[in-house]
Structures are given as structure tokens and as C-alpha cells.
Nucleic acid binder design. Structure first.
Length: 232
DNA sequence: GCGACAG
DNA sequence: ATCTTGTCGC
């Protein structure tokens, strides 16, 4: 765990300070080949809210059997409101709390949001990956930054997300499910874009789901937890 | 100034 | 993200 970056994240008080942290994170990201033969477990994290209470969920599955082998929930008050480009400063505190409660340390974490497909290459998946020092993948339901050519309605079809400033490929749009909106995949940390897309496709198509199985389950649990609180 | 804008 | 039931369509 990179406590230095975690502390910088927790102490950032305005967008100027957040930008400084993101510029540091950008230089710590390593887009590199991951030995997939050693990957046994994958986690998905998600956060939902009731007012200013955040409910964090982390679900871990065995990548071969797709069986859920761990799930943890944590609740806490959030202090940072949502600001586009600074989602991590709102959700990282609760995600780290949740991560610390888990009994299994996953080989990959999939985050609901962008990785490097971000104006400063520091989306929440990259931010988390730099702090926990594990491979992470960003899989978002919509685009934050970048350009892509509309993709045909063909399952499995994918297309590059390009940074308009540098013309670099910063992610892929992937149609994981027919007749539904595509997902936006980008490298978080310690993995390649191709491998990220491979994992997302495998976990969504095997579940006939638009989102990767772990993200889908984590989202479902966080909404169930919210319902429980509303009833009491 | 204008438009865009993860969750 | 959240407020919210049924309903149109594949």
C-alpha cells in the first residue's frame, strides 16, 4: 500500500491540490504485461450513496469457476462531493476501507470508472492501482474524456478511445452485449489495454452481462445494502 | 465565454 | 450517484 499517495489523497482540500496529486499519480502508473497464467482472483468495487453516507462493496470471484469467494461491505460518511475529473477524491477513502476488510487479496481489481482515459491519465482505477499497488482496470458505463468512432451494434466489437490532444490510444470502447450501450475500458495500473479488454470481455460475456460479473454483483449488493438502511 | 462532464 | 412504476420493445 502506498500510504504517501493515500495521505495526499485524503488531505487534498480543493481541485488545485487534487490536480497536483493526479500529476504525481500519472508518473507512477505502469502500463505493462501481466502474467495472466498467475491470475486466480478478480475483484469488483462499487460505491452507492444515501445522502452523505457511502456504501462500499468489494466482490471477489475465482476467475476460472466464476464463483464468488469473498464479499465485503463498508459504510462511512463522505466529505468530498462529486466533481467531474475528481471522482477518486470522493470514492477512494471508502474503497480503501472496503479493500482493507477483504479476506482475500485479489490479483486484479476492476473499478467502475476510468483508468488512464482521463485528462491527466489519473482516473479512479489508476488512482486506486497506484495506492494499492495491484493491477487495476477501469470499466466505465460512459465516457469522461477522449474521442471514438461510433461502433456497430455487434457483440464483442471494439474501437479505440483517442486523446484528442496527443492522438494516443487511451482506452477501448467495447460492446460487451448486443443492443445495449458499450462500456469504456482503460488501463488502471500494472496491466496492458489488450489484457484489460480481454478480462472485461471474458467476465461480461460469460455472464451475458453488459458489465463484468464482479462489477455487476458489487453494484447489486450496494443497492441492496442501501435498501436495508432505508427500511430501518 | 462556450460546452463537456466517470459516479 | 439519486429521485421513481409501469411499460414499450427485442
Amino acid at each position: 500500500m502506498n500510504f504517501e499517495i493515500l495521505n495526499l489523497t485524503l488531505s487534498a482540500r480543493n481541485t488545485e491540490e487534487c490536480k497536483r496529486v493526479q500529476l504525481i499519480i500519472k508518473d507512477l502508473i505502469e502500463e505493462r504485461e501481466l502474467d495472466l497464467s498467475k491470475v486466480k482472483t478478480v475483484s469488483g468495487v462499487d460505491v452507492s450513496y444515501i445522502g452523505d453516507i457511502g456504501i462500499g462493496v468489494m466482490v471477489t470471484i475465482d476467475i476460472n469457476t466464476l464463483e464468488v469467494i469473498d464479499k465485503v461491505v463498508s459504510k462511512s460518511k463522505v466529505s468530498f462531493h462529486y466533481i467531474p475529473n475528481f471522482l477518486a477524491f470522493r470514492e477512494i477513502p471508502i474503497i480503501i476501507d472496503t479493500f482493507n476488510l477483504a479476506s482475500i487479496s485479489p490479483d486484479i481489481v476492476i473499478v467502475d470508472g476510468q483508468g488512464i482515459a482521463h485528462p491527466r491519465r489519473a482516473g479512479i482505477a489508476s488512482h486506486l492501482g497506484v495506492i494499492i499497488q495491484k493491477p487495476t482496470i477501469g470499466c466505465a458505463k460512459s465516457l469522461l474524456y477522449g474521442e471514438y468512432v461510433d461502433i456497430p451494434n455487434i457483440q464483442g466489437y471494439e474501437s479505440d478511445i483517442i486523446d484528442p490532444k496527443t492522438k494516443e490510444v487511451i482506452g477501448k470502447v467495447v460492446r460487451t452485449k448486443l443492443s445495449s450501450k458499450p462500456v469504456f475500458v482503460s488501463v488502471g495500473n500494472y496491466i496492458t489495454l489488450e489484457q484489460s479488454v480481454q478480462i472485461v470481455k471474458r467476465l461480461s460475456e460469460s455472464a451475458k452481462c453488459r458489465l463484468p460479473l464482479v462489477t455487476f454483483i458489487a453494484d447489486k449488493i450496494s443497492k441492496e445494502e442501501r435498501k436495508k438502511i432505508n427500511l430501518q
